[in-house]
Write a protein that binds this DNA or RNA. Sequence first.
DNA 1: TCATAGTTTAACCTGTTAGTTTAACCACAT
DNA 2: ATGTGGTTAAACTAACAGGTTAAACTATGA
Lengths: 205, 205
Amino acid sequence: MKKDISTEEKILTAAGQIFKSKGYAGARMQEIADKAGINKAMLHYYFRSKKMLFDKIFKEILSSFHQNIVKILNDDINWEKKIIVLTERFFLFVSKNKDIPIFIFNELHKNPEFFQKQLLRFETIRNSSFFKELKTEMEKGNIVKTDPLQVLIHIFSGMIFPVIAEPIISSIGDFNNDGFESFMYQRKEIIPKIIIEYLKNNGEK
Amino acid sequence: MKKDISTEEKILTAAGQIFKSKGYAGARMQEIADKAGINKAMLHYYFRSKKMLFDKIFKEILSSFHQNIVKILNDDINWEKKIIVLTERFFLFVSKNKDIPIFIFNELHKNPEFFQKQLLRFETIRNSSFFKELKTEMEKGNIVKTDPLQVLIHIFSGMIFPVIAEPIISSIGDFNNDGFESFMYQRKEIIPKIIIEYLKNNGEK
DNA sequence: TCATAGTTTAACCTGTTAGTTTAACCACAT
DNA sequence: ATGTGGTTAAACTAACAGGTTAAACTATGA
């Protein structure tokens, strides 16, 4: 109890980096220990097993990702502005955390049952003010009737997918680093425009 | 020389399945051997090492993915119809090969230098009739000026991302299997509509 | 000073993994 | 039958993984 948390903290930081870049199966306890600057036995002293250490980290990442989304979805601005802000925020988030999305999706793909154990309260997303406002506008006939989740996934996929697929996109576009960044910057402008135009295109056709 | 290729073929099929579902680090040579119905030593007899076996399979998957795209991009139909067809085809492809995209992106993420070795000719995508026609229409002022690659990535992300993120989307939407499928079916209709509307929305604003 | 709880270390243990070797096997030509 | 080349299964090996142990160290309070 007297010890400052630095050792535990160092382990979590190091383990987070290793797991995110190599995945569960590719990560080595020794490598995590080395990166944390401690002995391998310490990992087991603090977290008992590789699985437990991983679960703790994965749970934290998943939960912060979830909270992040919910917070934005409940911002007190109108739906149109919120689509723009959502895109902007996701752009910032994935730019700073490029390896988190692929890490989450990959581990979830290999271990789908992990999700049931998590009990993340996803109804907070369905019940967010963003979803509610969209539904209200749809009922009023102001915007196209569609599943609000489709709208959210437009934003997710529009901004998260390119980061996951960066090596391929950069190859197709023959980009260097700057090229890809400006591609993403363009995207940040286009995505909300596309979605909003689509939703507003009601009376036509 | 007398032997038919069935053994090699069986190995490749089995290894493909295991690698795709577990990734390189998670795959076990013994498991591949079992699935192929042969002895572990045979894997080494035919492919020398795990790395070589993996490289061969990864190369094949990447290449077939690439060829698949190029073929569709050069279909002899106009751009508008092509967006619809592209979306449809990607929908079918990812539905039948749900674990290929995440596998490719994940392994590429862990081993980015693999790409340089591949020398896939991505200019065939930039030079496809789809890209050319979009550029022509943009110059004529018939559609909004934008990078054709952005349009392609709209389709990719719109259809591929949801498959990668299926567990999360199903949780948010509280879907069972059918629920997710009908979500994707809706999506297949929405995505081309959104893109085409956006491109045609030229004079306004 | 001594006792104690918490922390750290090095050495060790055990199971698993990729990769190797050996010997048996089988069809077939001589 | 016998030898031969290609093919297979099984046992083996060395390295490495995760995990354990026991002893040493450190700070603190009695």
